[in-house]
Structure formats: structure tokens, C-alpha cells
Amino acid sequence: MTDKKAAPISRRNFFKKAGTAGAAIASGTTALAVASDVLEGEAYSDALKEYFQKHYRDMSKDEVKAALARIERKAKRKHGVDITVENTAPYAREDTVFGYALNISKCKGYRKCVYACVEENNLSRDPEIHYIRVLEMEKGSMDLEKSNHYFGEDPVPKAGKFYLPVQCQHCEDPPCVKACPTQATWSEPDGIVVIDYNWCIGCHYCVIACPYWARHFNWEEPVIPKEEINTETHYLGNRPRERGVMEKCTFCIQRTRKGKMPACLEACPTGARVFGNLLDPKSEIRYILENKTVFRLKEELNTEPKFWYYTD
């Protein structure tokens, strides 16, 4: 586990280095000299503090604030960009639980949502990570196994096909959360299933548990062109990730908690996507749930997705 570039130390490989440093401290005076081979000054103390950082939900206000500042500094060192990492709490108005509805008779498979999501959420361009998979399905068939994810040589929509975008379904009873051995993933009060990237150990249990293929693993250090980095980020959302952690759709927590629409919805040219507060009886999503034929994926698994599909 050697660092090719003199990249800042991640939580995991720091383990090793901290070990070395620890040994050095024990043996004498060269401790800091050894460590500062790799990191200096603030970078070193940041890495140390990051390593001992508490779980998101256990941190005090000040500790969170310090953590956010650390992430900002790290992004500056690593990517040379000034980002802001926020910690916007669940929507100020009481009783907000987010839900999503997608009209499959409107979706035409243009994939605009996929790439809007990539840009908004700072997804790795190479290797490629996409939170949304648009599946091309046979009309009349509901067999996901026979769907085609790699369509796109010809114009869409193609005759006899329909298109089914799949992303994190934000289950009410999320199997990924149950599977996680470190509690690095959980449901927030507004129903968004989130990950504390600092606590994820990359064990893949959640990937196996998720029936919707919604979790994505950073097999390698994510690569994003510097000028394309979205600098408005959220701790639980689109802040820069590192190799070895899971990530997934967060309903654009950095946007939606401020009252904005998710990026995939804004990008959709057909108006197939609808987002809103499930607990607000006057919301668009409630109108759809109450007046349209809706279904959810793999309902028999009782994961209770908060993501509905509908037709009209």
C-alpha cells in the first residue's frame, strides 16, 4: 500500500503510517521527521484528527465544524479547489420526508439525468461511477435481468421498448443499513439514506444487501477534472470521496435540504421525474401517489422504497 503520488493520507493507509510514526515516537526523537516525509504541518495534524474523527452522529457541533473545515482544507491541498462543505440539517419545516416518483411512460432514455448527477455529485469520471442506471426494457416485460443498460447506438425511444431509470430507492427499511457492520450508513430524519464516508470501511456488505444495485464502490482514487468539481457540497452528500469507500444517490441532499430540486429532475427533458415531501398532502408527489397507477421495484422484498414508478 504505497502512495504513488505524495497524495494526502487517507484514513486507511494512514493506519500504516501512523503505526510507523507511533513506533518512531516510542523509539525517540525522529517521530515528526518520519511523518513529515509524507505530510507537513496542518496536513499532518488534519490527517491525525481525521483518523480519530467520531461518527457523524456522535460529533458535537464544534467537532462537526472542525471536520467540515478539515475536508475543505484537504480538498484544497488535493485538488487545488476551494470547496464549501455544509452540514445543512433536515429541512427546517417539520415533518418532511422526501419521496420520488418517476413516470415511465414519459421517460425516453435520453440519459440526461445520469450525467447531470455525475456533475452535481462529483462522481468519478474515470473509473466511471453513475448513481443512475437507465435500463432499456422490452415493452410488456418486467424482467430486469433482461434489461439493457448499454443502449444508445440508435436514437431513443426505440419501438417496442420502455426506459426504467434505477437509483437509490431510499428504502424505509433499508437492507444496506442493516448489513453495515460499522453503522457508516443510516436513514436521516427526512428519509434520506446517507453514508459517513469517514466511517465506511469498504467491506461491500451493503452492495450485496441492496437489491437495487444502488451502491457504488470507489475501487480507485476518483478522478474529476479540477474545473468540473462542484464546490457546493454537503458532508453527507457530494463532498469529495476517496478510494475504498461506498457512495450512492442522496437525493442531492446538498440541494434538496435547501429547498431545491434534485439535479436529475432539473435535467430531465421529458418531465418524467417528480420530487417532493411525502408528508405534505398538497404536494405533487402525493397527487401522483393518490391518483396514478404506481408501483415500486421488488415490492415483495418489503424494503419499502420511497421511490415510485407510475404510468398514465
Binding site: R111, H130, E145, G152, P155, K298
Partner: peptide, 28 residues
């Protein structure tokens, strides 16, 4: 009809290939 945005390069995920569960959509 129009051309969609680029085809994904490929997804490296253990789940897609090895799944043996039937992936049916439940419309009920």
C-alpha cells in the same frame, strides 16, 4: 426520437453479474 447521452463505459460491480435472484418488478 434523439440520440441519448453517452453509453456508460461499464460498471465494475460484483452485484450485476453474479446475481441469481430473480429480478422481477412486482406491480402489485
Amino acid at each position: 426520437p434523439q440520440l441519448p447521452d453517452p453509453i456508460p463505459k461499464g460498471i465494475r460491480e460484483i452485484r450485476m453479474e453474479r446475481s441469481n435472484q430473480p429480478h422481477k418488478i412486482e406491480t402489485k
